[in-house]
């Protein structure tokens, strides 16, 4: 069973995309790829999710924007990005050199019309494989999160985007809701092709000396290993109530974490904060994932998707 030479298949199919492995960097945790490309060949990734893109340039939130917390970090970047036109002209073409690397563009905004406009522009791009609809950023005022916490609003957003999108649409869900299953079901019924969860958990830390919130904008989004159990539970619950694929996100640092998300029901995963700790995190996690399969006699990683679900004896 533990044959070190065993040939294992860790590829997965996600929407219409074939991913050579289930690991992709999460939006906002990899910029547009150029910086990390000096550390390794991005072609080893299952896919890449680039930074949230809005209609117009955004300068983002005041500093400090990041703060370490126990086994995690808070961020309040505020969707700083150069706007969709420059993203399409200056950032995405660079990634086309990685021929088998699906590029997923995270779309954000403050009103449905903005999202629709960005999606329409991206739909003409040969450099895009899928859209990830960001209705869960906690760090912008009236920026997405109101769509991410109301099932009806989420559904209208998804319908509006699906009407113009030429690529598959993944909806990125917020954990900052009473019932994430209700949100997931509403998005699926409105036509979402896939779901990614979770975005960051809203949190805050106080600067004791200054007696005020440490982050420049007060609250921020908590990420890292501290939130992994929250994410696992949400993936586990959502998986049983939808038939579209789920992408697991939240505190993945190791190959074992990837396996855990897949067993909970994820078809693929996104790695976020780990990239900040270690620029080589993704290739290491991919190697560890393959190694886990070898060690456990798993010939195809697709066998373990949902393995921990009750219906599968979990």
């Amino acid at each position: 069973m533990n044959d070190p030479q065993m040939d294992v298949d860790i590829s997965v199919n996600l929407l219409s995309l074939h991913l050579k492995n289930p690991v992709m960097p999460a939006s906002g945790c990899f910029s547009f790829g150029k910086e990390v490309a000096s550390f390794y060949d991005l072609g080893v990734l299952g896919a890449i999710v680039v930074k949230a893109t809005t209609l117009d340039e955004r300068l983002g939130n005041p500093t400090p924007r990041v703060a370490e917390t126990a086994a995690g970090m808070l961020n309040s970047i505020g969707l700083q990005n150069p706007g969709v036109k420059r993203v399409m002209q200056e950032e995405l073409p660079y990634l086309s050199r990685y021929r088998s690397l699906p590029v997923i563009v995270n779309v954000a905004g403050t009103a449905i019309d903005d999202y629709v406009d960005v999606t329409r522009q991206l739909s003409s791009s040969p450099d895009v494989s899928a859209i990830e609809l960001n209705i869960s950023c906690p760090n912008v005022k009236c920026g997405g999160i109101q769509f991410g916490s109301d099932p009806q609003m989420a559904a209208s957003m998804v319908r509006a985007i699906k009407a113009v999108a030429t690529h598959p649409v993944i909806v990125k869900l917020s954990p900052n809701v009473t019932d994430i299953v209700e949100m997931a079901v509403a998005c699926e019924e409105a036509g979402a092709d896939g779901l990614s969860l979770i975005n960051t958990v809203i949190g805050m830390t106080i600067d004791l000396e200054r007696r005020r919130p440490l982050l420049g904008s007060g609250a921020g989004g908590l990420s890292g290993p501290a939130i992994k159990p929250i994410a696992i539970r949400m993936v586990y619950d959502v998986f049983r109530h939808v038939s579209i694929p789920v992408i697991g996100i939240g505190g993945i640092m190791t190959g074992a974490d990837v396996i855990e998300f897949l067993m909970a029901g994820a078809t693929a995963v996104q790695v976020g904060t780990a990239n900040f700790v270690d620029p080589l995190a993704c290739p290491r996690i991919i190697d560890e994932t393959r190694e886990w399969c070898v060690q456990h006699g798993v010939r195809s990683i697709r066998e373990i998707i949902g393995a921990a679900q009750p219906a599968n004896g979990g």
Binding site: T63, R65, V66, A67, I77
Partner: peptide, 16 residues
């Protein structure tokens, strides 16, 4: 001097 996250330009935390 700004509070940094990644140090390599991907988190966009330490802007000035």
């Amino acid at each position: 001097e700004e509070r940094m996250g990644c140090g390599i330009g991907i988190c966009v935390g330490c802007v000035h």
